[in-house]
Design a protein around this nucleic acid. Structure first.
Length: 599
DNA sequence: CAGCAGGTAAACAACC
DNA sequence: TGGTTGTTTACCTGCT
């Protein structure tokens, strides 16, 4: 047991240790896994390509913002110099000339290199994108369910009447088109995003703009959408009314899109006020603004982690400007939001691929019953959650696969990293390399609440979490500091993301969550593994850490019980530990939700 | 640069 | 005897 973690670092020198944390091990395995599975960059599908393009474009936009900062002083330089991750190997730099590392992004944000306007634009656009992704995912889920139902019906029926087959085929075709449309949508949004950034930086070199929409014009997409959904009413009006920005391709949802449009219209806005001005041209009622504002709903401020009650829209705006002005906290929350959006993007992309593979498989099967499953599908499913599917199983039932679509595992995570940044493959896991594309792992299960409850962030405490292949993993680990464990439990339960809280905080949370506010050591272990997928690995390491923390901190009191020893929390001692910097500095050594509990 | 907090590893003892 | 629990120490990293 002890060997499990011990050998990882012991056998390596300190330099290697820097990249030899548990997460690293995961990646290392993953890379090997992906290689052995024959996954090569050559297998990048259209969806992946689109996604990579998106990411690169986004990074390029960010790069512009960075390049235009001639520098924020000596101190900044010093900090940068200390960051090994900034030393981009030539080969990598040549491959991805416009890529900035997440660490760089983090630094930039921390140093407030970005202007308030730029940050605001970034935040709003990311949120718009996120909303859209949510809508897409919902719709996509519905489509999946329909498909599954149909497949099940076919199975039960035994045979497939020709009519059914035709319907299924038709639906599959629609879904394929839908997928294409979704990709284009993302591209379009991204393009808009870049345009927004460029408009802010007129003096900067322009980016090589990619074709806005490849092969399809918005009208065609709309038509396609109508075909697919069979419903088009108010959406058309809403979408077509956007004369300032052509968002017709984003008209997927009747609810989300106006929000996205609103946000995109407010590039130069600060804290939402300009968006109001923009909208005033189109509408004059505050109620409508309130309905459309992504950060306001049901009389509550929807700023991540806020939920302040605002009686009306003007008071909301006032609140927005007072409480969510550009500061460290907002910046940190912006970063988190970006990561969330990226994860959603990635997950959507992955699911689309899988669906594509499923559909392809169905097609193949109808003509070539003995054909082996599509490699993409097979490799994906076979490594999902440790499930192994034979081709026969794949043919016999898709239920498990569909089930697998909504689950996540380390394999998903790793596969994602290795696939999405194929350039990284040649690098050895222990070689500190420059981070590549800012993709993140794709936890399949992410609750909507997790998006809305973002709080302080615990900074990276050790380079051991800096995964050399793609530091995006690291940045996600650090940035996905969704403070309210309770509300984000689904996320942590399924995504192998290290929770951004200290062991002490987590232990305290575990104990306080228990009915009697006391737990045995074993129960604490169980809580960890139950609540966090991350703690289902390297048990020896983190269990040792838990014990270490229990013994070390005075706030944990061991009490002899009838059953044996239980641990309790001395709240006073815990609060004494350290003044908590909840706001301002993005550093949260303790879990805010626990603080809330104790208050 | 020192001090601190936190994470990791490990040695060791007591207990079951 | 082996595993678990608990304590302690050492070392590292990042931050202030």
């Amino acid at each position: 047991m002890m060997q499990e973690s011990g050998t990882e670092t012991r056998s390596n020198d300190s330099a290697i240790q820097n990249g030899a944390g548990p997460g690293n091990h995961l990646l290392e395995c993953t890379l090997r896994e992906s290689r052995s599975n024959g996954e090569t960059p050559l297998e990048i599908g259209a969806a992946e390509l689109a996604h990579l393009q998106q990411q690169q474009a986004l990074q390029a936009a960010r790069q512009i913002l960075i390049n235009q900062q001639p520098l924020s002083g000596i101190k900044t330089h010093k900090r940068n110099d200390k960051q090994p991750s900034l030393q981009v190997p030539v080969s990598v730099a040549m491959m991805t000339p416009q890529v900035i590392t997440p660490q760089q992004m983090q630094q930039i944000l921390q140093q407030q290199v970005l202007t308030p306007q730029q940050l605001q634009v970034l935040l709003q656009q990311q949120q718009a994108l996120m909303l859209q992704q949510q809508q897409l995912q919902e719709f996509y889920k519905k489509q999946q369910e329909q498909l599954q139902l149909q497949l099940l019906q076919q199975q039960h029926a035994g045979k497939q009447p020709k009519e059914q087959q035709q319907v299924a085929t038709q639906q599959l075709a629609f879904q394929q088109q839908l997928l294409q449309m979704q990709q284009l949508q993302q591209q379009h949004l991204l393009t808009l995003q870049r345009q927004g950034l460029l408009s802010i930086q007129p003096g900067q070199p322009t980016l090589p703009l990619q074709p806005l929409v490849q092969g399809m014009i918005p009208a065609e997409l709309q038509q396609l959408w109508k075909e697919v959904t069979g419903s088009h009413t108010a959406d058309d009006v809403v979408c077509n009314n956007h004369s300032t920005l052509d968002l017709s391709t984003t008209c997927v949802s009747s609810t989300a899109q106006p929000k996205a449009s609103l946000l995109l219209n407010s590039h130069a806005s600060t804290n939402g006020q300009a968006s109001v001005l923009t909208l005033k041209r189109e509408s004059s009622s505050h109620e409508e603004y309130a309905q459309n504002h992504s950060l306001y709903g049901h009389g509550v401020c929807k700023w991540p982690g806020c939920e302040a009650i605002c009686e009306d829209f003007p008071s909301f705006l006032k609140h927005l400007n007072n409480e969510h002005a550009l500061d460290d906290r907002s910046t940190a929350q912006c970063r988190v939001q970006m990561q969330v959006v990226q994860q959603l993007e990635l997950q959507l992309s992955k699911d689309k691929e899988r669906l594509q593979a499923m559909m392809t498989h169905l097609h193949v099967k109808s003509t070539e019953p003995k054909a082996s499953p599509q490699p993409q599908l097979y490799t994906t499913c076979s490594r999902e959650n440790g499930w192994i599917y034979s081709s026969q199983q794949l043919e016999e039932g898709f239920t498990g696969i569909l089930k697998g679509l909504n689950l996540v595992s380390s394999a998903t995570l790793s596969k994602t990293v290795s696939e999405a940044s194929p350039q990284s493959l040649p690098h050895t896991p222990t070689t500190p390399t420059a981070p590549l594309t800012p993709i993140t792992q794709g936890p399949s299960v992410i609750t909507t609440t997790s998006i809305h409850n973002v709080g302080p962030i615990r900074r990276r405490y050790s380079d051991k979490y800096n995964v050399p292949i793609s530091s995006d993993w690291m940045i996600s680990v650090d940035f996905l500091s969704l403070p309210d464990i309770a509300q984000n439990q689904e996320f942590y339960k399924n995504a192998e993301v290290r929770p951004p809280f200290t062991y002490a905080s987590l232990i305290r949370q575990a104990i306080l969550e228990s009915p009697e506010k006391q737990l045995t050591l074993n129960e604490i272990y169980n809580w960890f593994t139950r609540q966090f997928a991350y703690f289902r690995r390297n048990a020896a390491t983190w269990k040792n850490a838990v014990r270490h923390n229990l013994s070390l901190h005075k706030c944990f009191v061991r009490v002899e019980n009838v059953k044996g020893a239980v641990w309790t929390v001395d709240e006073i001692e815990f609060q004494k530990r350290r003044p908590q910097k909840i706001s301002g500095v993005p550093f949260a050594p303790t879990c805010p939700c626990i603080s809330a509990l104790s208050e």
